[in-house]
Design a protein around this nucleic acid. Structure first.
Lengths: 219, 219
DNA sequence: TAGATTGTTAATCGATTAACAATC
DNA sequence: TAGATTGTTAATCGATTAACAATC
């Protein structure tokens, strides 16, 4: 598939959202959608929708709109979801277990092939038929199985150390759930999920409203 | 505290990251930092750091830089972390349990006061001294205890329904972990954590690299 | 005082929106 | 064909960066 270079991250971050909406349309047997209707549902402008899609070479049709199925297939391809990436989770605490049990990831092509922890109580147990191994086996496992994605769910103070192990094994992407920023080699992709940051943004916005209210009350 | 209106979301989303870096400085007894050094550590420009802070009224000193402690206290205040928001979790599955066990949230002033589920096996049990109650008690609980934040960890198909219950109870903010977008009243703040979206962005970037590589190999 | 670094204005860059010709 | 809607260029808007006077 042809692909223009330098798509901005702003566009890329909207793509999964498009996919979710288009999936929803398909589930409701809507086989056709215009940029203006899709934009209304999603809270974007029609212009933005068309600009976004045209970054990847226009899969609409003048006078008609977008065929939902075609749109869906293109988004899947653009997002690389037809690749079936192999994934391991390091740190099988509450969060690691939660992620291991997420069946949604499997549906999108992400294959959980390994779980790693240091706790001897956990090593040997299995989640969804994937055995928990000791983390000192992780590096070789990544190498041998050509694992793509490492999910980092370990305590913050060992985040960098475990990330290093992953990279030594040849991991290509790290999905980082720790509160730490990790340093990676140039060719490794990191996607951060800083839950505490998200909660603080919520706090900011709640606080903002409370201040507004207090100011209004004083008048 | 005086507060300018209309700070852009781009700025707000950087604030928690500033806070984490400043905390780190304090932990290492760094009592003073210039915009240029902080920007280098964080990968921003010095200009951006100064612009960001000046949205909230400049707490630096010419010729000196920023006092780390003062900076920290300001960020805490700006983010509303001195408020101690009350929080409940709806849906005590793997993810709900993981979040309930996160002690980091408590340290930032978020108080877990309730857990709710429909599973009779779970109702009555406790996590960190918070009892799991049936979700049909949630609305009254929110009202009675003046709960601020509702964490939505329920299955996607009941997301809107449970969000509605929260709003009927008078919740002020919803932290949404479901893959669904939820409709809320104007005065309710929603912060989404779409894990699958984040994973898809990682997939996009991995796929991008693979395509590059394939193209290079063909030459 | 001299040096350093902020606060702030101006310039640039990039992303979003508007407009419209192309075309199904 | 006429109507609709895309693809794409141009205009606008907003965010980031650069520059420098203010001042500690």
């Amino acid at each position: 598939m042809f692909k223009k270079k330098n798509i901005s991250l702003a566009v890329i971050r909207r793509l999964p959202r498009y996919l979710r909406y288009v999936e929803d349309l398909l589930n409701h047997d809507v086989m056709r959608i215009s940029s203006s209707e899709l934009s209304q549902r999603m809270g974007y402008t029609a212009s933005q929708v068309r600009q976004d899609f045209n970054n990847f070479g226009g899969f609409g049709q003048q006078g008609y709109g977008y065929n939902t199925q075609v749109l869906y297939e293109n988004l899947v391809k653009i997002l690389g979801l037809d690749r079936h990436f192999k994934m391991i989770i390091a740190g099988v605490g509450n969060l690691g277990q939660a992620l291991a049990n997420y069946t949604n990831f499997y549906k999108k092509g992400f294959r959980l092939v390994g779980l790693f922890d240091v706790d001897p109580q956990k090593v040997g147990r299995s989640i969804r038929n994937v055995e928990i191994k000791h983390i000192n086996k992780m590096r070789e496992f990544i190498k041998k199985n050509d694992v793509d994605i490492g999910v980092l769910c370990v305590p913050a103070d060992v985040a960098q150390e475990v990330a290093n192990l992953m990279m030594e094994g040849g991991i290509k992407g790290i999905w980082n759930f720790t509160a730490k920023e990790i340093d990676v080699k140039d060719d490794v992709v990191v996607e951060n999920v800083h839950l505490i940051d998200s909660l603080m943004v919520l706090s900011y916005r709640l606080n903002e409203k409370l201040i507004e209210k207090e100011n209004a009350d004083q008048k």
